[in-house]
């Protein structure tokens, strides 16, 4: 079986996997990182989103072997070593952007990528469009959209440009 070596949440990790093993299976079943969830089998729901080399990726859509040598960040790797939460995590809690919590890890990882890749601001429409690949059945998205808008100034260290509001 192929061996895969990668960096996960800043620490080296390696495991023997079947060629067909998905990245999400490697994370959950071999590395014990169960914060990344599996909500479907057609790459539609986004519960499994992680960051691979800084980009949001559905980890059910990528083979573990394709992540060989990559830097992967999962929901467990977002908070600082002292437990300080990422601003996106804080805003999800502050704005009640989660209920059952199952879609939350994927939502948070997608949201961080969305905010990071929009340094000029985000409109509600852009946020909603950016969440197209993530399903939530509990919240109706209302508070998720609010949380992401609230996290933007915290992540960029400046106010949201007026045009984007």
């Amino acid at each position: 079986m192929p061996q895969v070596s990668l960096t996960v949440n800043g620490k080296p990790a390696s495991a023997e996997v079947e060629a067909r093993t998905l990245l999400v299976e490697l994370l959950r079943e071999k590395l014990g990182l169960t914060g990344t969830h599996v909500g479907c089998d057609t790459s539609q729901c986004g519960a499994c989103v992680v960051h691979v080399d800084g980009m949001a990726v559905k980890s059910c859509t990528m083979l573990a072997v394709q992540a060989d040598g990559a830097k992967v960040t999962t929901i467990e790797g977002l908070a600082a070593a002292d437990g300080t939460l990422h601003p996106m995590q804080e805003m999800f809690r502050e704005h009640h952007a989660l209920q059952c919590g199952f879609c939350t890890p994927g939502m948070v990882m997608t949201a961080i990528d969305l905010v990071a890749t929009h340094p000029d601001g985000l409109t509600e429409e852009q946020i909603r469009h950016g969440l197209e690949g993530n399903l939530c059945r509990c919240t109706g998205y209302h508070n998720i959209v609010k949380a992401i808008a609230a996290a933007w100034p915290l992540m960029h260290g400046k106010g949201m440009p007026a045009a984007a509001e």
Binding site: T34, G35, T74, L78, L85, Q89, F92, G101, F102, T104
Partner: peptide, 14 residues
């Protein structure tokens, strides 16, 4: 919320 936003929820498949 803390456990859910930090990836430490404890669902059956976990």
């Amino acid at each position: 919320d803390l456990r859910f936003i930090s990836g430490h929820g404890h669902y059956t498949d976990d």
